[in-house]
Design a protein around this nucleic acid. Sequence first.
DNA 1: ACTGTAATTGAAACTCATTCTCATTTAGAA
DNA 2: TTCTAAATGAGAATGAGTTTCAATTACAGT
Lengths: 146, 146
Amino acid sequence: MDKALLEKFKDTLHTNGMKCTPARLSIFKEIYSSSEHFDADEIYFRMRQEKKSVSRATVYRTLDLLVENGFVSKVNVGASQVHFENTLAQEHHEHLVCTQCGKVIEFRNDMIEKQQDKICKKFGFFPTKHNLIIFGLCDKCQLRDN
Amino acid sequence: MDKALLEKFKDTLHTNGMKCTPARLSIFKEIYSSSEHFDADEIYFRMRQEKKSVSRATVYRTLDLLVENGFVSKVNVGASQVHFENTLAQEHHEHLVCTQCGKVIEFRNDMIEKQQDKICKKFGFFPTKHNLIIFGLCDKCQLRDN
DNA sequence: ACTGTAATTGAAACTCATTCTCATTTAGAA
DNA sequence: TTCTAAATGAGAATGAGTTTCAATTACAGT
Ligand SMILES: [Zn+2]
Ligand SMILES: [Zn+2]
Ligand SMILES: [Zn+2]
Ligand SMILES: [Zn+2]
């Protein structure tokens, strides 16, 4: 995990008058230790396995804080829990989600991005974020059963 | 509300071996009485006001059934409850959602649709549905406050 | 029209992700 | 080192949605 990133997080905490606690730092590191999507409980369990336990409440509170400050973003993959992914270690992208096996494919398309800007301009809308998610069947699941 | 649409619903019930009950019919009519977005509880309360009470469980069960059969689709507007909108009384579209006042603007963009097809082809992905939602500030909310 | 029966319903119990409460601990300013 | 507001953990609470189950009902077959 990138050292500059950790510094940026510490800065954010500092400039917002928030304390730089061990819990926050280790949650941050855990999240930035991979680029996979995750939910709150996954982080909670991964951390206890690594003997760096924090309470669920703190995981949720820290996730909020990270979303609020742009380090993490919410990803709707049609699950009952909110899913997240870190934002600064990877480029902005959208998702294809297989409703059969859960596989997630990421993609990026500049034309779609541009059209969105165009649309926002048309409506005098100031966009802050967006999600495009396409549900369907991945190549493998199309071959399996009906 | 369109009579042919109600017949189509009855047909669907029939061909799927489901019973055509008063509860289902009145929930269907309620949903197709407007093109607004709604959540399960809204339908529940609207119906008791109109003295056509059904239980919450039945509202949820009927909504599932309607989604399953393409009469209604889920709309993610960033709320804690699942939102819905009817699909057959209006064209497919995407959403702009103002995070300040909750205003929802609907739009349609063929180029975005085409690009999605292209992407799915590229990944051998068979799309069944998609959601594009852009969060931000509507024109009015940009003028208000900071 | 009448019957039998499986589907549907309502009420209430339940689930489970997330949020809240509050007593205790702690980061970090002075 | 001291002080204090912020953060934490444990567990209670919330709330959307689901499940259970006994009672009701649509409707296929007579
Ligand atoms: Zn992703
Ligand atoms: Zn995008
Ligand atoms: Zn809409
Ligand atoms: Zn579309």
